[in-house]
Amino acid sequence: MLISTFQFNTTFFWHELLRPSSAFLGGLWRTVYISVIAQLLAVIVGLVVALARRSTLRILRGVAGAYVWVLRGTPLLVQLVIIYDGLAATDIYRFQDVTVLGVTVLASVQAAILTLALNESAYMSEIIRAGLAAVDAGQHEAALSIGMTPAQAMRYVVVPQALRFVIPPLGNDFNAMMKSTSVLSVIGVPELFFITQEISSSTFHTFEIFMDAALYYLALTTIWAFIQTWLEARIDRSWGIERAQRSWWASLRERFQDPKTLAIGRR
């Protein structure tokens, strides 16, 4: 009996979706932890760059400005190849697999985390800069009036308040970050896209396996949307602002229905 290979193999689709192979799960896991670590690093570096851009020292402002200009002005894919292959080809730095506490981190994964973090830190610095600017100038003065130094005012008063303005656009960026891990396949990082490609070429069930991958990406971004909604509600509560009579679920539904609700929170 002749079965067309273009037919959708329902069994294969459901099997890989519900009982994915360990290779598939491994790829999914790498996608998650690479995104999370890169995002955390990006927030830290982004904060430093954002503060540098507000510095009174012109040289510091200049260096930080150039950093953002270059990293936002060049494609992630190009940065990735330069850092992983370019540095190695010119013998400047060659990433090696390292084993820490029995866990081996592949060379390509290290380069991936570094590149994603650097790239994202440029965007984060702009988000944090906007967040800092959104905090009322009177807050800084109030902190100074009780005897804080400008550095203390920043640390104890301005930065914690900026968080409220930073979370919505940060969430947007992290959503994008999880999806852009798919370009890491170019340097051979065995993440979700790379593994999906491998399964595809060995089974020829291209449509099925990529549909599965798409659903897993969708699941990741959906879970993140839940977490983000929870975070925003929590921050609002810590300002004594209750989201009036609106359930957690309702505000999540709203997020998907109305793009305007993504706008930065009310003052």
Binding site: D136, G138, Q139, E141, A142, A143, L144, S145, I146, G147, M148, T149, Q152, V157, P160, Q161, R164, S238, W239, G240
Partner: peptide, 22 residues
């Protein structure tokens, strides 16, 4: 730091309160 130390002894009340909202 010296300015901050001096300001610690001078209370300042603002027209718009400037309480820390968080």
């Amino acid at each position: 730091r010296e300015v901050a130390t001096q300001r610690a002894e001078i209370g300042f009340v603002f027209q718009h309160f400037n309480l820390f909202p968080n």
